[in-house]
């Protein structure tokens, strides 16, 4: 299978403490990766680096065969989407929050579709009236569903999920997991990296595990 995202000889140290060095891996189409490691081992930092939000201190990241440095970053980030642990949603309706990314220049040519959004929601048993709710009235779990769904709708190649279910109850956790699996099944050139503390969850959502801070 084709390699979508690869990292080579990545190094990262924070305040003189080396988190990882010589880190390398390749994520291929249809692969599901989990990232494990203790708190402070740089799991979020790794995802943020892969998304081009943080510049690697050493080493190279390639997406679709091209080094990240050769990409226009918005073009790359439209395809390698990082989903934050804490959802940050604009004020207004859920529907507006989901449609907002389609106004970005990088997504011109794509259109927001209520139908697609409802389709995803239906797979996790949420009905369409959810789209009419105000984002500031949502519970933490509901906000996270919007956060993940917003990323899925722009149809990225790779999803980088940063402990999206850390603060959710089991029912909402199952929703988020099911959404991501539904998105993965839609095309065979997609992949995801999922940071998770929970071994049982890693077993559910991934086939490959990258463990950080194992040597430390």
């Amino acid at each position: 299978m084709e390699v979508i995202l690869s990292a080579q000889a990545l190094r990262c140290s924070v305040e003189g403490r080396e988190l990882w060095h010589g880190l390398g891996f390749s994520v291929r189409s249809a692969e599901r990766w989990a990232i494990a490691g203790p708190s402070g081992s740089g799991k979020s930092l790794l995802l943020r680096t892969l998304a081009g939000l943080v510049t690697p201190q050493a080493g190279e990241i390639r997406f679709d065969g091209r080094p990240l440095t050769a990409w226009r970053l918005p073009e790359c980030r439209a395809r390698v989407v990082y989903v934050m642990q804490r959802p940050a949603l604009p004020e207004g309706r859920v529907q507006a929050a989901l449609a907002a990314p389609f106004a970005l220049r990088v997504h011109r040519g794509k259109h927001y579709s209520d139908e697609v959004a409802r389709g995803y929601l239906a797979t996790v048993g949420i009905d369409g009236t959810f789209l009419e709710q105000d984002t500031d009235r949502l519970s933490g779990g509901e906000a996270q569903i919007v956060n993940v769904l917003r990323a899925l709708l722009i149809a990225p190649r790779i999803l980088l999920l940063d402990e999206p279910t850390a603060a959710l109850d089991p029912a909402r956790t199952a929703c988020v997991e099911a959404l991501v699996q539904a998105w993965l099944r839609e095309a065979d050139d997609r992949a995801c990296l999922w940071v998770s503390h929970d071994g049982a969850q890693r077993a559910r959502v991934s086939d490959h595990v990258l463990t950080l801070g194992a040597a430390a």
Partner: peptide, 18 residues
């Protein structure tokens, strides 16, 4: 204050200006 909002916009492909 809006750090997360700005960063999630960037993560979805926004330019710095957007």
């Amino acid at each position: 204050r809006d750090r997360d909002l700005i960063e999630s916009a960037l993560a979805l492909g926004a330019t710095r200006w957007e």
